[in-house]
Design a protein around this nucleic acid. Structure first.
Lengths: 203, 203
DNA sequence: ATCCATTGAATGAATCGTCGTTCAGTAATT
DNA sequence: AATTACTGAACGACGATTCATTCAATGGAT
């Protein structure tokens, strides 16, 4: 009982800080967010943050790791449910990308806006989890190329980048302008129509 | 004689500061760049920067405006030279997007990495020049929809976003990993093949 | 032509507010 | 009582901005 409560308390506090950081970063960006604001948002003292994270950079990186892992797990779980060919899987991947963003607006804002900065400027951090996320898409595309549904003249690594970029930019626009989730499925449908038709093999 | 020399000296200094800022921002990012570093890079004193720009934010915004305007002018001039239909124009647009990036690596790095941040966190700045840049692509797509080369079921604003996102993400990857310009044309070709085939009208 | 007065662009050291981080003290738990 | 978790005020470094000072260029006066 002790250990469980202890672990839960620990986990609770760490998670509260991560969540507070997420809200704060989404609202004001990493560099404009004070550690004290994160503490406020999380309902802990400033110093407590340093019991769980080495420094502000480490908090940012941990937040990436943690949330990306969660995203990857969810996407992979959902993709296993898909019955149908590669096209259906890719379509579902795109749908999920949008859907997760709509369900977690702060997370979407955080990732779309901060990913590039941090990738480049947080020293010696090369963001392996983001690579994993792209890897899912890359594998789907290769699968499609092997079974003949997708054209084979395009490099899967390059294309997965391009597809991610398209999804991400559209999402950025949606999250920045306070749009309703209602019509997001329309956006998702159009973007996936464009990209999947571009990927299709022709006779 | 006086006025010409005066104006040139003025212009020179302002431009030197902008260029210094560009190099510095590309190298370390906006928030990690000290004003004194920009001054060093530009070969002027710290205080001189404040004779030409209100503050650091203003310098960032001015840099965007100035360089985006230059890009837009160049793209529009080049597009006028294109003989051929809408597809050729769109292909050329994408080619130019990559080509300009290869010719101006610091500028490419600056725009791909800083555009999102600044769009969101520099107060009350909505980046009209970036809208203009996207507008060129949007108009091309509408043109293609009207003359029947492009499918009409996709919203041109959305699609132009998606296409920009795809180009931008691929470019980001290229600029971050120190690649040779030699094979960039290959990347450009593949991305435009993907996107243009996605845009094409089918019988 | 020479000298002096005036200008204002440019400088860069000093200022001052702003955080990230620490740590001595307090509370909670066992 | 001892150990551990937490707190938040204080510290110190940092860096954007300011402003008193310099000095090269200009032009009017002799």
């Amino acid at each position: 009982m002790e250990t469980k409560e202890e672990k839960k308390a620990q986990g609770d506090k760490r998670e509260k800080i991560l969540q507070g950081a997420l809200e704060a970063f989404a609202k004001k960006g990493f560099y404009n967010t004070k550690v004290s604001e994160i503490a406020d948002e999380a309902g802990v003292a400033d110093g407590t943050i340093y019991l769980y994270f080495k420094n502000k950079d480490d908090l940012l990186i941990s937040l990436f790791e943690d949330r990306m892992e969660w995203i990857i797990d969810r996407i992979e779980a959902e993709l296993e449910q898909v019955e149908g060919g590669t096209i259906e899987k890719v379509r579902r991947y795109m749908e999920l990308h949008f859907q997760l963003a709509v369900e977690n607006p702060a997370l979407a804002e955080f990732i779309t806006v901060e990913l590039r900065q941090s990738a480049k400027f947080i020293k010696e951090y090369d963001n392996p989890k983001f690579g994993d996320y792209l890897g899912i898409l890359k594998r789907l595309i290769e699968e499609g190329q092997q079974d003949g549904t997708f054209r084979e003249d395009l490099d899967s690594r390059l294309v997965s980048r391009a597809v991610f970029g398209a999804l991400d930019e559209v999402l950025l626009q949606l999250t920045l302008s306070a749009e309703k989730p209602s019509d997001v499925s329309l956006e998702a449908t159009q973007v996936s129509a464009l990209l999947i038709d571009g990927l299709r093999a022709r006779e």
